[in-house]
Design a protein around this nucleic acid. Structure first.
Lengths: 201, 201
DNA sequence: GGCGGCATATGATCCGAATCATACGGTCGG
DNA sequence: CCGACCGTATGATTCGGATCATATGCCGCC
């Protein structure tokens, strides 16, 4: 369970990173606030929301442990949405100037950050593609394939299946049923939070 | 209808960009091929797919007109999936060395590219969040709000509603019905492909 | 002109995931 | 030790979006 703060690009920024504790419902920033920096969730959950003129709320993103957010703030002067803690949360604050300074001082840091963004784009596109699959079982199978692909045929989850279900875009009931079905069909083998994908060969 | 090739970061790369025409089913690259560059769809549609050992296909992304893809190849030596034209397509090929040279020569180009990636991440996250909304009408409304937010209360589509429906993750029937419902509810006003969002005030 | 194809649009039916309900085991705290 | 809570798991029912069907208008093409 490697923390996000141990990633090379972030540790290269060094001592300028502060940590903030937020209580439930507490705001980290609001729409229109001048940009102070970008953020990483160490623990907890932060909701990014935007309000239309007439008060309708849009959820833009829910960042959980290990996620960074507001990266686009590096290229803007003000925040374009509100960030509010869903639950008590610990947030790493990475000041904008510190990042830009690190980028200028060492191009490798900029490259590493760029690579991170590119991989994020890649991952998000795949996750969206997964959501285009209507069938719950097929969706779960494809999700497992996606996770297992880099390594071997085993997928190990470090969080509960309720959370995984939400990520796949299913209720936990539907997710459990999909796992059952795949197991019955002999496509997977389960052992707690370890799932092995079986070759139909 | 501004073409993707007119964006500053890409025009800064200059004359090294080539254009390729692909027939339906033709491959642009295959998993394991050495990286030549990244790509932009000028016209048509390209499917990025990965094959598991046992032949199961996973669709990672379907890039359409105006999309770039394989950005992560800048940080890799080989491609990690296949790219195949869904329909006859025109593709801009941006050689990896040309991009890296442009980045080194002018940090602003690197920054512009980084900003583009960051905005992509932002947009993709919102799209995923939209998919978490189960109700078709609410989903469409939120989608419209998302698109309208930067400008005013009007959204103008430059493509047919069938394509929009797919992006929202609905069948076109469900999408049309959602629009009808929103119209009846007085939440929107329609005029062909122009949709105005009405304040309930 | 006439035809085919496509986007738009809406009605009827079906299916499957959401929802509601229930149960069991593990863990944490009193 | 016991009770509350949560994750896991599965059954029963509901509901809404997918699917199938159908119609209209527009455009390009023969």
């Amino acid at each position: 369970m490697k923390g996000i703060l141990e990633e090379p690009w972030i540790s290269a920024i060094g001592g300028d990173i502060r940590e903030r504790q937020l209580g439930e419902g507490q705001f980290l920033f609001r729409q229109g606030d001048p940009v102070s920096g970008i953020f990483a969730v160490i623990e907890g959950r932060v909701r990014l929301v935007r309000y239309s003129r007439d008060g309708i709320v849009s959820v833009l993103y829910v960042a959980v442990s290990g996620d960074t957010f507001a990266e686009a703030a590096l290229f803007s002067d003000v925040y374009h949405c509100d960030a509010v803690a869903d639950v008590p949360s610990g947030i790493a604050v990475i000041p904008k100037e510190a990042i830009l300074r690190a980028f200028a001082a060492n191009p490798d840091v900029a490259t590493a950050f760029m690579a991170r963004l590119a991989r994020q784009v890649q991952a998000l596109r795949s996750r969206l593609e997964i959501r285009n699959i209507r069938s719950a079982t097929e969706r779960v199978l494809q999700y497992l394939l996606l996770l297992s692909a880099p390594g071997q045929r085993a997928v190990v989850f470090d969080r509960c299946f309720k959370d995984v279900a939400a990520e796949v875009g299913l209720t936990h009931e539907a997710f459990y049923r999909a796992l059952s079905t795949l197991d019955t069909q002999g496509k997977i083998e389960r052992n707690g939070r370890v799932i092995r994908i079986l070759d139909p060969a």
